[in-house]
Computed example of a mutant assay.
Amino acid sequence: MHQPQRYIAHFDLDSFFVSVEVIKNPALQHRPVLVGGSSERGVVAACSYAARKFGIHSAMPMKRALQLCPHAIVLPGSYKDYTRFSNRVTDIIAHAAPAFQKASIDEFYIDLTGMDVFFNPLQWTIDLRQQIMAATGLPISFGLASTKLIAKIATDEAKPNGYLFVQPGKEIDFLAPLPIQKIPGVGKHTLPVLQQMGIHTIQDILQFTPQHLEQKLGKWGQTLHSIATGSYDMPLENSHETKSISTEQTFAANTTERVFLEQKLVQMTEKVAYELRQEGLFTACIAIKIRYADFTTTSKQATIPLTFCDDELIPVAQQLLQQLLKPHQPVRLLGVRLSALSKHGQVPDLFNQINTKANLYKAIDAVKNKYGTFALQKGRSV
Rank of each mutant, 00 (worst) to 15 (best):
residue 32 P to I: 04
residue 118 F to C: 14
residue 254 N to F: 11
residue 272 V to P: 07
residue 308 F to E: 09
residue 310 D to I: 04
residue 144 L to M: 11
residue 231 S to N: 14
residue 177 P to Q: 06
residue 310 D to K: 04
residue 358 A to K: 06
residue 200 H to N: 15
residue 284 A to T: 14
residue 314 I to R: 08
residue 198 G to M: 07
residue 219 K to D: 11
residue 355 N to P: 02
residue 270 E to N: 13
residue 135 A to P: 03
residue 89 V to P: 00
residue 155 T to K: 01
residue 58 S to D: 01
residue 129 R to H: 02
residue 351 F to A: 13
residue 366 A to H: 15
residue 200 H to W: 13
residue 299 S to Q: 13
residue 134 A to H: 09
residue 119 F to N: 08
residue 339 S to N: 09
residue 142 F to N: 01
residue 243 K to C: 11
residue 343 K to H: 14
residue 337 R to E: 03
residue 249 Q to E: 15
residue 153 I to W: 01
residue 334 L to A: 04
residue 334 L to W: 05
residue 1 M to P: 11
residue 138 L to T: 06
residue 214 E to A: 15
residue 30 H to C: 08
residue 83 T to R: 13
residue 160 P to E: 09
residue 284 A to F: 00
residue 162 G to R: 00
residue 349 D to K: 13
residue 137 G to P: 03
residue 211 Q to V: 15
residue 40 E to S: 15
residue 121 P to G: 10
residue 256 T to G: 11
residue 146 S to F: 05
residue 355 N to W: 01
residue 375 A to N: 12
residue 254 N to P: 11
residue 69 C to E: 02
residue 335 G to S: 05
residue 244 S to K: 06
residue 314 I to V: 15
residue 200 H to I: 08
residue 140 I to G: 04
residue 95 H to S: 12
residue 267 Q to M: 10
residue 240 H to A: 11
residue 189 H to R: 14
residue 289 K to C: 01
residue 304 I to F: 11
residue 240 H to N: 14
residue 63 K to M: 14
residue 89 V to Q: 02
residue 120 N to P: 10
